[in-house]
Design a protein around this nucleic acid. Structure first.
Lengths: 214, 214
DNA sequence: CCTACCGATCGGTAGG
DNA sequence: CCTACCGATCGGTAGG
């Protein structure tokens, strides 16, 4: 691996675990096996390095987004959208922690990111939800945008602190049952969105998948 | 107000907004209007001050907890429990931010706090939920402990970043609609917990409140 | 509650 | 990619 990628890798771990102010450039350089001035050759400032770390998270999200929106147009859109989003963050929980920290540290900057990068496709999905409300699949009392924001927060924030929350579920203290949390999250998201009819219709589709035509 | 309380107040705001490492003792002292060594007379170290700030949050929570558990034994336990918990954090969102930051910065310490201070009364409430499952008021597929953890996270994390999330809901960019988020949170928590029968029974109780006997 | 000061560490630069 | 070094700021102490 080239040095630049190594630096980004180590910096991601450190910024996620200890935050911007809790991470020193020397500590990152040490982990990579170089000296601080060498690090500053690849990234001209600590702020530049931090920006690059966040940018990498956004880039990787943008890489799976088209695949997600394509799935959102298919039949079992809900399960795919939710489980793929969960997968993206559980595959590297540091992504969730970085986003959470950035929201706490720079709320104004995060508001802007939300408006330009999240709001557009969130509105697209909210449109799907509204149409499903008219067809009676989705509960009429649901607030599409607010619902989606809560589910996103449930996933991102949940993954960021899942190993801490999980300890309450496993009495022994050894294994933190994250799967139990994920299953319940999925249940909460489903049940609070769909009507009983919508749920039945969805389960019917799932039972028929594979044997059906396409 | 005495100096000690002033220091705690300012430190709470600063630690919540910028984190432990992002807050200097001089900055806190400046806000209070004293010098750093004077601050260190009241709190022997930065760590001691930070502990005192967290302790104050826990103390204030413990002050409302008996009132909460008493309400949990009454009839409309769900609405009271949820809305009082929301009130506790919205009344000072810094409480939520401090807890979130502590979870990110010191997950091991937070795990311990969860086990000794949260798990006990969470088990009590989970017991209520399980009994309501047997009577058919609560959905049989709900996982009581996991459900409660998600709702707690939804409230605490949600309040911590509500002004950032809210910006997506208000297109104008002026007022962030936090009430819309709160209402949808409450809906998600209710609908994903109760059966249709349980919801009807609850609404019946609420309609009868005030005119009923006690 | 203050002034004065300590060693350590920070992000960043010079120069090779 | 390194050594050597910079000014600024950190948490904390001495002494009054």
């Amino acid at each position: 691996m080239d040095v630049r990628a190594q630096i980004l890798d180590v910096a991601t771990r450190r910024f996620a675990a200890h935050g911007y102010d809790g991470t020193s450039l020397s500590a990152i350089a040490d982990d990579v096996g170089i000296k601080k001035p060498s690090l500053l050759y690849h990234f001209p400032s600590k702020d530049d390095l931090h920006r690059a770390v966040l940018e990498q998270v956004v880039d990787r999200w943008n890489a799976v987004l088209p695949h997600l929106l394509a799935a959102a147009a298919s039949q079992d859109r809900f399960d795919t959208l939710l489980s793929e989003t969960v997968r993206f963050f559980t595959e590297d929980p540091d992504r969730a922690r970085l986003i959470l920290r950035e929201t706490l540290d720079h709320p104004a900057a995060m508001r802007e990111r939300l408006l330009v990068a999240v709001a557009p496709w969130l509105e697209v999905i909210a449109g799907y939800v509204r149409r499903a409300q008219e067809s009676g699949e989705v509960r009429a009392d649901a607030d599409p945008e607010a619902y989606l924001l809560h589910v996103i927060h449930l996933v991102v924030g949940g993954v960021a602190i899942s190993d801490t929350l999980g300890i309450v579920l496993s009495r022994d203290g050894a294994s933190s049952d994250i799967e139990r949390l994920t299953r319940e999250l999925s249940r909460i998201a489903r049940v609070s969105l769909f009507t009983p009819e919508g749920l039945a219709r969805m389960d019917g589709r799932r039972a028929g998948a594979g044997s059906g035509s396409h």
